[in-house]
Structures are given as structure tokens and as C-alpha cells.
Computed example of a mutant assay.
Amino acid sequence: MTVPAPGQAIPIEKVPNLRDLGGWPTPDGAVARGQVFRSAEFSALQGDDATSFGALGIRSVYDLRTEDERAAQANEVPTGVEYVVVDILADHSGAGPAQLSQVLSDPKAAEEMLGDGKAVKIFEDSYREFLSLPSATAGYRRFFTAVAQDAKRPALFHCTTGKDRTGWAAASLLMLLGVDDDDVLADYLLTNEELLPSLKPTFDGFAAAGGDPELLQPVLGVRKEYLDAARDEMTTRYRDIDGYFSTGLGLDAATIDQLRSSLVESS
């Protein structure tokens, strides 16, 4: 039996960017498979897709989206699955990841807002806010505290496209578990392979309205610079990943130890 590669997509059409965080090597073994999943939103989950999703055995879903995002695309969560709202950007104001979709229907407004490198700067600033916003700190604390509990897993976490708020949650968890920095980045960048093809209608619609599709690449995809910005903010504030989880998020040693012991399989 062939063992899936780390980060390999789980092919459920109505759950874009769905991936198991397991399989990435750590100093003591590998991240446990089948325990923590990441994805984009899944408001259209039904039929065979719902059956396939149910087969993953997910016990709890953590929705990192804003109130407006949830209202626009309400989750379809299988019966018996705990659904928890963890609004990472509740304290955010301005044009961050959750707000940029509003300009995609207006190429002129998009050019003014996103052109000349402004999109990259917007996202770098937003990633730094994952380390500074009170709502982000509270939200990630609640999520990681829950995921440390065996009864809450298998667990899935997601935002709208599963790339920014979800991307930082995945990257920071993998870092805590001892995954090599290059592998953390590889997992993060897989979004460009797994998500962008599903967004072709968005690119095509923007082009049809007179926009340059290249303008959307830094908005709808991910870049190393974004994760680097979050890492830089983390080390500036908390020195390292242990400081982030203990001092930044306020998790006690027992919770951090439980995350590591339950989510790493010995080799």
C-alpha cells in the first residue's frame, strides 16, 4: 500500500484545499495522519461529497471566518459534528484577507487597491496581525487548546479559501511539532496548487470585466513573503515558536506537551 505524500490533497470537490496535516517528518517521527485537517469553506457540501467528508470521521470543525463571511456562505456541517466559530479577524479593520473579495468585481478599484505591489504589502501586514490582534490571539488559543484534546479530534479548521488564517494556524502547529522550516513552507505553498485551479472562474470573470488576472495572483494565492512576515513578527514578539504558544497564546505546558505527544507518531 502506497503511503500518501505529506500534504496530499483529499479529493472532495465541494471542500477545496482539503488536506491532512499529517505525514510531515519531525525529529521524533512524523505528524500523525488523520487527526487534523485544513480546508477552504464548504457551504455546498452535499450528496457524495458529504458522504466522503463524513468518512474522514471529523468530530469538530473550527470556522476561522468573520461574521459576514459566515452569513454569505454558511457551513454545511454533518450531523453530530461540533461546530465552533473562532473569528480570527473580529478586531481587524481595513482591507485584509476577508475584505478583498469586495473589489474583485471592479477591475479599476482592484488596480488602485492592489496594484504596484500594494496587494503583497496588505497581506504581509495582515499576517503580522495574526500575531497582534486580540481576536487572533484569543481565537488561535481556543483552537489549539481544543485540538490538544483527544475527544475533539479528528478536527478540521478552515477560513474562506483556507490559505491565510488557516495557513498560519497550520504553519504554526507544524512548527510547534518540530517540522523542518522548508517542509512548513512546502505545506503552506501547496495552496497554490490545490486552490488556484478551483478559482479559475474568478480569474476568468475578472479578465472578462477588463482586469488583469495577474493582479489577483497575490490575492488568491499565497507567497513565501506572507509566511515570512508572520514568522518575523513571531520572533520579534516571542523569540520562537515555543514563546508564541506559551507567552503569546498563553497555553500552559501541559497543553503544549499534549499537542506534541498526541500529534506526533514515533518512527
Rank of each mutant, 00 (worst) to 15 (best):
F143P: 04
V77M: 05
A74E: 07
T51W: 12
S93V: 14
A119Y: 03
T137P: 01
E67N: 02
G22Y: 07
G80S: 09
A109S: 10
V120W: 00
D28Q: 15
L114P: 08
P27C: 01
E76M: 14
F123E: 07
L131I: 15
D91S: 10
S105P: 09
Q73F: 12
Y140K: 01
K152M: 05
W24A: 05
F143W: 14
S132T: 14
G139C: 05
T26H: 00
Y127A: 00
E67C: 02
A148M: 04
G57Q: 08
E124A: 04
T51D: 15
D68V: 05
A90M: 04
A110L: 04
F144R: 07
L45R: 12
A98Y: 10
G80T: 05
R141N: 11
A30L: 13
V84W: 00
E129L: 14
Y127G: 03
V84K: 01
L21I: 12
A72W: 01
A151Y: 01
P107G: 01
G115H: 04
Q102A: 14
N75A: 10
S43A: 15
L131T: 12
G94W: 07
E112I: 13
H92M: 10
A40C: 06
L131F: 13
V77A: 09
A71E: 03
G47M: 08
P97V: 09
T137C: 02
A40P: 10
E76D: 13
P27G: 03
G139V: 08
M113R: 14
A138L: 10
V120F: 00
D150W: 05
V86D: 01
G23K: 06
D28K: 14
T66P: 04
L100E: 11
A151K: 09
E69L: 07
D106V: 04
G117R: 01
E111C: 06
V84H: 01
A110H: 00
E111H: 05
F143A: 02
T79E: 10
E129V: 11
I58L: 11
F42H: 15
G47S: 13
G139E: 03
F37D: 13
G54V: 08
S39Y: 12
Y62A: 06
E112H: 12
A119D: 00
D48G: 05
V31I: 09
